[in-house]
Amino acid sequence: CFEPRQPRLKKCAQEIPRLANETIFTTNEVEALYELFKKLSSSIIDDGLIHKEELQLALFQTPSGENLFVDRIFDLFDEKKNGVIEFDEFVHALSVFHPNAPMEDKIDFAFRLYDLRQTGFIEREEVKQMVIAILMESDMTLSDDLLEAIIDKTFADADADKDGRINSEEWKDFVLRNPNLLKNMTLPYLKDLTTLFPSFVFNTKLED
C-alpha cells in the first residue's frame, strides 16, 4: 500500500481491481475516484476517511448543522456502520449513481434512503418527517392541512394496497410511473472520472 500519511486507506494494487470487479467502474476510474476521495476525506480531518461533517461540508458548503438527508446518505454509504466512510464503501455506493448502473439498484437505494427506520416500508410518518425536513431546509412554510393533502395525494397514488405504507413493490411501480424521482440517483460526472481527475495518472499502478 502507499499513502503513508493515510495508513487506514488500503489502496493496494490488489484492492483497485477488486473494487473494479465489484462495481461498474474500471480500474482507472477507481483510481480517479480515489483522487476525489482524498479531497473529501481531508477537508476537515486529514485521516483518509470521510466523516459526516466532511460530507455535510461538501453538500452544503458548511460543516455544521444537521440535515436528515445527509444522515441518510451517510448511513447508506457507511456499510460497516462504523461512523466513517472508507474508500471501498465510497466506491460501492457511487457505483449505484453511475448512469449505466441498473435501474433496479437505483430504485432499491432510493427505497432504503427513504425507509428512515429501516422497517422494509416507507411509512406515512416517515414521509411527513422528510417533507417537514425539506420545507425547513428550503425556508418554506406550508399549513398542516396542505402538508397532509400532499401526503394523502402521494399515498393515494403510491400505496396500492392502502395499508398506509409503501412496500418495495409499490415503490418500484410508483417510481417507474414517476421517473423524475430517480433523477438525483444518477450522476453524469461519473462517466468522466478520468477526465475530471487526470492527476490519477501520476499515482496509477495499473493500465486499463
Partner: peptide, 25 residues
C-alpha cells in the same frame, strides 16, 4: 408550486440528496 408536487418530488429537491455537489471541490 410545492402543492402541485407529490411528496417525493419535494423531498428529492434536498441539497443533501444532490450528490453532484461532491464534485464541486
Amino acid at each position: 408550486q410545492p402543492t402541485a408536487m407529490n411528496a417525493f418530488e419535494l423531498i428529492s429537491m434536498s441539497k443533501g440528496l444532490n450528490l453532484s455537489n461532491l464534485f464541486d471541490i
